[in-house]
Design a protein around this nucleic acid. Structure first.
Lengths: 241, 241
DNA sequence: CGTTAATTTGAGACCATTCAATTTCGGTGG
DNA sequence: CCACCGAAATTGAATGGTCTCAAATTAACG
């Protein structure tokens, strides 16, 4: 029963962009792993650390960040369940940034060698892994655009759109409403703004009837107009379905 | 003679991060390809285009960009000789952004299927390709940090550092002096600044005796201090040697 | 229900932008 | 070789978006 198995979601994710044989699916399910729970704000990976395993997020949210010498930080990406938070580290061998949990979350820890081994033996799976890292990269590119060339309002709206779409893709959320665990300060660190200005920007989006955001819950009220305001085109997410 | 062969530089680049057997090297050299010259400012890849081939830059510089609905643009990355400008497109199948030449340049156009085929048969080469795309992604992450959380001066300095280091790695440049084909407007589109402010920022770096920049030539005069000013740590380039 | 974290508000300062004009530079034709 | 041209670089002044700092309010949590 893949449906109940902790690695079932990974099978489903990879099936979306790669065509897997039944035996590929079995190979995923057979991956050795241990489940691990992380408290809120726990480090899942530390910058500079050598990698021996990869973490697949099963429940909860996580983010990747880089700290600057002047004390500020930039969040590089947000991760939602069914995603690897550090697949690239498993390949490059050393983490060039940290990963932290956004809330209490659960992950399947898979030995790096086990992943490399199924990658070596199973063309479809290695392609699926590669594609995962390429989609990651595509999202990074869009983030460069977001922080580089969009004003605060558009920038924040774009990030919200991305998260809602990604959450809906994995079935977490309906009618534009999703669980939303980011504080405004974290939102600010995603968008390169200050927390204060992020607050004012959110108020502006609220006032215009575009979103509703409170108590861990985000709703996009007018998807049509939101998409417009956010300059949002989801092609870069490469999620055809 | 790999030294004279157009794909020789690719052998050398991949050898830096992956260990290749002689037969791997031969397989690279045997890749079918055609040489193609691009005029200055020519499109090498267009956003939305389906991919049938990948371009390896042999001479000259190129950049990837995204255009926004408000008319502005963000440059996503700069590419120098020996790099693929669109390896990820070859895998994902559709280009989510454009690639343009920065000056007159020359590329080896390799059929996508030929690359996929050596990737399928040669573990070391597929790993080398994957690593290339992962290093790309790592650079994107650093760019997010750069435009997101650094002020103009640090931001521009950081970009200059990155380019000098990457150019020196491939033997183009000595003693901090490199061929530099970016206009200030393009520099601005890399850093999310305006051309005017980029100009003032460069002047400030010049005034402080950090760089010399004119007529397609950039020299870092005080590498120690420049590194400091730029908040530059090259770990993210993943170029051990 | 107290305590801390998160959000909100206000006012002033500043970094970067905008717009417009001027100067320099690289390339081209006479 | 010089005159010319358009592109690139430079300068100035005014505007504005975002930041900073500090305080007040609200929400989360044990």
């Amino acid at each position: 029963m893949n449906e109940q198995h902790p690695l079932g979601p990974l099978v489903r994710r990879w099936s979306r962009h790669s065509s897997l044989t039944p035996s590929d699916r079995d190979a995923i399910i057979a991956l050795p792993h241990v489940r691990k729970t992380f408290a809120k704000d726990a480090y899942m990976v530390r910058e500079g650390q050598r990698t021996h395993e990869c973490s697949l997020l099963l429940r909860g949210f996580a983010y990747r960040q880089k700290l600057l010498s002047n004390g500020s930080r930039q969040i590089i990406s947000i991760h939602i369940p069914t995603e690897f938070v550090d697949l690239q580290n498993g390949i490059l061998g050393v983490a060039d940034h940290s990963v932290q949990s956004l809330d209490r979350c659960e992950a399947a820890i898979i030995p790096r060698d086990a992943l490399l081994e199924i990658a070596a033996r199973r063309p479809a799976l290695r392609m699926a892994m590669w594609i995962d890292t390429l989609i990651d990269a595509s999202i990074f590119r869009e983030w460069v655009v977001n922080v580089g060339r969009r004003d605060a309002r558009t920038r924040v709206a774009h990030l919200l759109c991305e998260l809602v779409v990604r959450l809906e893709k994995i079935g977490m959320g309906r009618d534009g409403m999703v669980d939303f665990p980011l504080t405004q300060e974290q939102l600010a660190d995603c968008t390169g703004l200050t927390a204060v200005h992020t607050n004012r920007t959110l108020q502006s989006l609220r006032k215009d009837g575009l979103i509703q955001l409170n108590a861990r819950s985000l709703t996009v009220l007018d998807w049509e107009r939101m998409r417009e305001v956010a300059d949002f085109d989801e092609l870069y997410l490469h999620q055809e379905i």
